[in-house]
């Protein structure tokens, strides 16, 4: 279980550190895969129809469909490398390092009672992932990057959810996943429209509205 958690944290580093959008999407896909395995492990029982089904659905949505959707929406958009980061990737990585350190230093102060089957690294990793998602959302301006930030945030929230995995009914989890899927689908359509309207997917050009 610890290895999976370490993997989840490392993928967030990959997302922040790489300059290619395709690498980022792949990293998010891997993170989704790790998350679905984590969910399977956290349930504790290996041969459980419920768990297997949920594993299948999570894996399918988070690792296959969502990345494909994002790839599809950026197809035909020329610049796959994002050149003009508002904040340099060095300082972003340093910030992420800081976030990780702080999250893991306070490992014992979180009030969440972690069950016996759950690793104590879970809460710090989840916190790191959530905060990274927010970091990406506030520093990146490209529409795709904002979606990736949103997905990482969502993955972090899901990792938190592992602490209560036994209480949550399957139907609700599937509903949550479906919502995210549709959300990404609509965001993908919007990226296409933003690109068509502005010849760019930088959300900096979305600045017409405001209070005069």
């Amino acid at each position: 279980m610890n290895w999976i958690l370490v993997g989840i944290v490392l993928t967030t580093f990959v997302v922040l550190g790489s300059s290619r959008i395709t690498t980022r999407i792949k990293a998010v896909a891997i993170q989704g895969g790790l998350l679905s395995v984590l969910q399977f492990v956290a349930r504790g029982s290996l041969f459980d129809i419920h768990g297997a089904l949920l594993f299948g659905i999570t894996f399918f949505i988070k690792t296959i469909i969502i990345p494909l959707l994002i790839f599809r929406s950026i197809r035909g958009i020329s610049m796959r490398v994002d050149k003009e980061p508002k904040v340099s990737s060095h300082s972003l990585l340093l910030t992420l390092g800081l976030i990780t350190t702080i999250s893991f230093l306070n490992i014992n102060t979180f009030p969440l009672a972690v069950g016996a089957t759950i690793s104590s690294l879970l809460i710090p990793s989840a916190l790191t992932t959530v905060l990274t998602g927010l970091l990406i959302l506030v520093t990146k301006t490209k529409a795709t990057n904002q979606i990736i930030g949103f997905l990482i945030l969502e993955n972090g929230v899901f990792t938190f959810g592992m602490t209560i995995v036994s209480e949550f009914p399957t139907i609700v989890e599937v509903g949550v996943l479906l919502d995210i899927l549709v959300g990404v689908f609509i965001m993908g359509i919007m990226i296409y429209q933003i690109n068509r309207t502005f010849d760019d997917i930088d959300t900096k050009s979305l600045s017409l509205l405001g209070d005069a």
Partner: peptide
């Protein structure tokens, strides 16, 4: 203009609601 409004709406509300999900997890915990 409507594209900008819709994108802002979708992104801000989705992020907000993701935080609400985190809140629900805490309540359940």
């Amino acid at each position: 203009r409507s594209l900008e409004a819709a994108w802002k709406y979708l992104l801000i509300c989705s992020v907000g609601i993701a935080l609400a999900l985190l809140g629900i997890f805490f309540v359940v915990a």
